[in-house]
Design a protein around this nucleic acid. Structure first.
Length: 924
RNA sequence: GCGGAUGUGGCGAAAUUGGUAGACGCGCCAGACUUAGGAUCUGGAGCCGCAAGGCGUGGGGGUUCGAGUCCCUUCAUCCGCACCA
């Protein structure tokens, strides 16, 4: 066996694990289960990203550890395979996206295996497989066939809604809906089938609607808000414009309250919960209806501060508000039209950067609902059409934005809450007293809120209202590489497909671009798009979010072709015990997954309301660039330590390749080879080194700071790589990818190997019984590592291993009884290494199948209760000491600690519990 | 502006409920072995100081016998959202 030959060891065990199907979980079992999940990757052509392994190593460690502790562990892997890059590659090359995707998946799996990750092959899935997306489509059909009952807080079948309409109309119904008008049962029965279908559409959880969408001309598709960053598409960075289009939407807003409420119980980071809370953006206030002066239209506003109603001096509409045209007076018409046009074309980026108030008077007026005063109606783009009603009651005295606007356009500012100085700024506090407010006068502002709402409700011109920032999500994409929408049209009415017709398989087409007339790519599938029964298929596909919103339910029972998941299996495995992935999915994937889970729960299809009990966000991996100083005039490269601080301005900083530097020392020959620049001049320091300057930046090829995980595996092995990545620091923290310290970890493995094999490869392990000291070292290590893994502080485990090896080596201990348990506890981190030695110790079965003894019980606490114990010349009390403990024993303690001093002076507490070096608890 | 997080040696970082701050690793210094070494082994070190000693967890204040840890305040950095009525 000889020296630690990681290359052959790792290859061998990776092969063994695969052949023996070591990682297959039992679908059902009496054993306790543990479900570990990584956010599945998009299989991109670039291969596994360097950021991926961090999370995957962590979950692999937990998997192996839990298995060792006797759990039935499911740790599956899959691929979020639909998406834009494969499609764009297909447009360029004509190669089918499925083919590219299959290649990339294969490559990913190979890379994963090289790091020692193995996943249940039976659970492997990809969102683009028809037997998977059959169920994505199935869920969509269910969403289409359900509406949301706000009284029961539950989704119900559309068939029940039809019954309700036929017997009582919609007047008493409390539902999540975009239906504005009401009708009686008689009216409902008199509607044409088409009219009925249009009304039902306003209740469906998946519905068609005209929506202002983010249209990306370059990609030829609409994008969800989450897919747009700073007015550009998240993928590709193309400009995005607002456009009104008929699109599929999902009524996620029906679930806003439930999504908000159950957030509290989750074991997620505060910032994650805060981001979701903010995204949902629930705010309570009132809606108030205003009569437009001179016409019979009304305008509804939403406000969180109805208490300030008497300070309302004007109204502002969003430029896109539907009533703008109607209320505009003739002499203002030109100005208004010009402003609307300007606001529409104003770039998103400009709006964000430039918050100076702009706007124009429409010439119209509303009547104040309580005083009857005529208030001017303005339009301004600081009011957005997508929030509330797209109209506000402006109260300049008590709102910063209204204040700024009123000042700029010289509109009266009327103080109705005293306590501030409205000549200087808006007064926002709710603690001031109401003034100039009729029946509210004298109340505190926060008391005035319920009072005025009650009044408005009595008058029938307003009511308590809750508004959300969250919008329904647009669920169609005019793309090819996605799930076809399982809907067809007949006589202008949309029908969902039956379960037995699914999956609606994505047809092959000869070109992946949108058609010449701007129709989605699926319009090219001429033989496909018309059904035998004459129905016409919807030509949209679903967004990437669709497949990733429920995949965690599929893994436990991935081959089931009868059900989305067998209920018994689902009940056993769900929820996911540990979910690991990046923060970037905070408001995208994670919120839609929670939404679909709640919907599937309403259907009775799954047993949980929350899919992910514990969520850990691994930090981003940054790059560490290496910079060289080059003299501005001579072009000589100078070692960084030779340049005095005050001369750095005579040099420019040039990026060099991080792979030819180590610990800020660059290999000059390698640089010359790399750049093919044989004439470059270098000035070295007195040790003959050329020093560089490190800088943390984004990891990027252009900065020459990318490091390929494969290279590290080749050089040091997967086990070293795994240990090192965990050693670097907490997984949640963003950290630079710096391989400088990796030798330390590698040396540790070599030293551990040397506990088993001597200098001349002789076997050192003995069968002697361990001493108390050796056992103490072992159990200290086990305890530290177990705690570290449980709280996912993997970085604390590696030092524990190192200390163990150091101390055991110092004792010259090579005893099986000490080394065997150590291998077990080390195996989650360095599995190949431990398997090999485990086998060499004479075990037939894999170390993964060895259930570890209940280590906890073997802690030798009994022996530790020697009291007092001498450490570093000081004497310390170790254990609980009764109040009546003999004084002479206590006097031996020389803790520099006043309590103990007092105690010795006779002021004895009833009970004092002391552990090495610290008093833990004093009960007086 | 709002929300969340983080500040500890030259660097990555430990310190689970307040109890010897800096474990462990990198780098650094010294030594050993080597033809050589970006190899291996042994030892050293928070900072200031020759020393005794003093100072030390972003800054200031507080609670406590005792604070990296708890409270108040302030500064800096990172992430998310951003005219949300």
């Amino acid at each position: 066996m000889g020296k630690y030959d990681f290359r052959s060891i790792e290859k061998k065990w990776q092969q063994q694990w695969k052949v023996n199907r070591t990682f297959v979980a039992e679908k059902l079992s009496d054993k306790p289960k543990y479900y570990v999940l990584d956010m599945f990757p998009y299989p991109s052509g670039a291969g596994l990203h360097v950021g991926h392994p961090l999370g995957y190593i962590a979950t692999d460690i937990v998997t192996r550890f839990k298995r060792l502790k006797g759990f039935n562990v499911l740790h599956p892997m899959g691929f979020d395979a639909f998406g834009l890059p494969a499609e764009q590659y297909a447009i360029k090359t004509g190669i089918h996206p499925a083919e590219i995707t299959a290649q990339n998946i294969k490559r990913y799996l190979e890379q994963m295996e090289n790091l020692g990750f193995h996943y249940d092959p039976d659970a492997l899935l990809a969102t683009s497989y028809p037997n998977y997306y059959k169920w994505t489509q199935w869920i969509f059909v269910k969403l289409f066939d359900h509406w949301y009952d706000k009284n029961l807080e539950k989704a119900r079948p559309i068939s029940e809604l039809k019954d309700i309409f036929a017997t009582q109309g919609n007047t008493r119904l409390v539902a999540a809906t975009s239906q504005k008008s009401s009708f009686s049962a008689d009216q409902w029965r008199s509607f044409s089938p088409k009219d009925q279908a249009d009304i039902l559409m306003n209740y469906r959880l998946a519905y068609l609607a005209n929506a202002t969408v983010n249209w990306c001309p370059a990609l030829g598709t609409v994008l969800a808000n989450e897919e747009v960053k700073d007015g550009k598409s998240e993928r590709g960075g193309y400009p995005v414009e607002r456009r009104l289009m008929k699109q599929w939407m999902l009524r996620i807003t029906a679930y806003s309250d439930r999504l908000l409420d159950s957030l509290q119980q989750l074991d997620w980071s505060e910032s994650m919960k805060a981001m979701q809370t903010h995204w949902i953006g629930r705010s309570e206030g009132a809606s108030i209806v205003y009569q437009v002066d001179g016409v019979k239209d009304t305008i509804e506003v939403f406000t969180t501060r109805p208490d300030t109603l008497f300070g309302n001096t004007f109204m502002v509409l969003a430029p896109e508000h539907p009533l703008v045209e109607k209320i505009t007076s003739d002499d203002q018409r030109n100005a208004v039209e010009e402003y609307v046009k300007w606001a529409k074309n104003r770039q998103e980026v400009d709006r964000i950067a430039n918050t100076v108030k702009t706007g124009v008077f429409t010439g119209g007026f509303v009547l104040h609902p309580l005083t009857g005063d005529k208030l001017p109606i303005w339009i301004a783009d600081y009011v957005v059409i997508t929030y509330g009603t797209g109209a506000i009651m402006a109260v300049p005295a008590h709102d910063e934005r209204d204040y700024e606007f009123a000042q700029k356009f010289d509109i009266p500012i009327v103080e109705v809450i005293s306590g501030g100085d409205i000549s200087q700024e808006a007064y926002l506090s709710k603690d001031g007293k109401m003034v100039r407010s009729d029946f509210l006068n004298g109340l505190k502002a926060y008391e005035a809120i319920p009072a005025i709402i009650q009044k408005l409700e009595e008058m029938g011109i307003g009511k308590k209202e809750v508004t959300y920032r969250q919008r329904d999500v647009i669920w169609s994409r005019q793309r090819y590489w996605g799930e076809p929408t399982p809907i067809y049209y007949k006589d202008g009415i949309a029908y969902s497909m039956e379960e037995n017709e699914l999956p609606l398989v994505l047809p092959d087409i000869d070109e992946y671009k949108p058609s010449e007339t701007g129709e989605p790519p699926l319009s090219r599938a001429t033989h496909w798009k018309t059904r035998p029964d004459g129905g016409e298929y919807d030509l949209n596909t679903m967004p990437g979010l669709a497949g990733s919103s429920w995949y965690f339910f599929r893994y436990p029972d991935a081959a089931n072709d009868q059900q989305l998941v067998n209920p018994e299996i689902e009940k056993y495995w769900l929820p996911v015990d540990l979910y690991v992935g990046g923060t970037e999915h905070a408001v995208g994937h994670l919120i839609y997954s929670r939404f679909w889970t709640k919907f599937l729960y309403d259907l009775g299809c799954v047993s949980v309301q929350e899919p992910f009990k514990r969520l850990v966000n691994q930090g981003m991996i940054q790059g560490v660039s290496q910079l060289m100083y080059r003299h501005i005039s001579t072009n000589e490269y100078v070692s960084a330590d030779l340049i005095p601080e005050n001369e750095t301005d005579q040099y420019s900083l040039i990026h060099t390749d991080v792979n030819i530097t180590r610990n800020q020392v660059m290999d000059i020959e390698a640089y010359r080879t790399w750049t093919k620049d044989t004439t470059a001049k270098f000035r070295l320091n007195e040790k003959g080194e050329f020093r560089t300057i490190p800088m943390v930046e984004k990891m990027s090829k252009s900065l020459y700071n990318t490091v390929n995980p494969d290279d590290i595996c080749v050089q040091y092995g997967a086990d070293t790589m795994r240990l090192y990545e965990m050693f670097l620091g907490p997984i949640e923290i963003a950290k630079p990818w710096n391989t400088d310290g990796i030798t330390g970890v590698h040396t540790f493995l070599k030293r551990t190997w040397n506990l088993f094999y001597g200098e001349n490869d002789e076997w050192l392990v003995t069968e002697e019984n361990p001493t108390a000291e050796e056992l103490k070292i072992l159990h200290k290590t086990i305890k530290k590592v177990e705690e570290g893994i449980e709280r996912l502080a993997f970085n604390t485990c590696v030092p524990a291993y190192m200390v163990f090896v150091k101390e055991i080596a110092r004792l010259g201990c090579h005893k099986r009884a000490v080394l065997e348990p150590f291998l077990q506890i080390l195996s989650p981190f360095a599995p190949h290494f431990c398997e090999e030695l485990w086998q060499n110790l004479g075990h037939k079965a894999s170390i993964l199948h060895s259930i570890s003894p209940d280590w906890e019980e073997k802690y030798i606490t009994e022996e530790e209760i020697e009291y007092p114990v001498q450490i570093n010349g000081k004497v310390r009390v170790r254990v609980a000491v009764a109040a009546d403990a003999p004084v002479e024993e206590i006097e031996k303690t020389t803790l520099a600690n006043e309590v103990v001093q007092q105690w010795l002076n006779g002021n004895a507490p009833k009970k004092i519990i002391v552990v090495p070096g610290r008093i833990v608890n004093i009960v007086v």
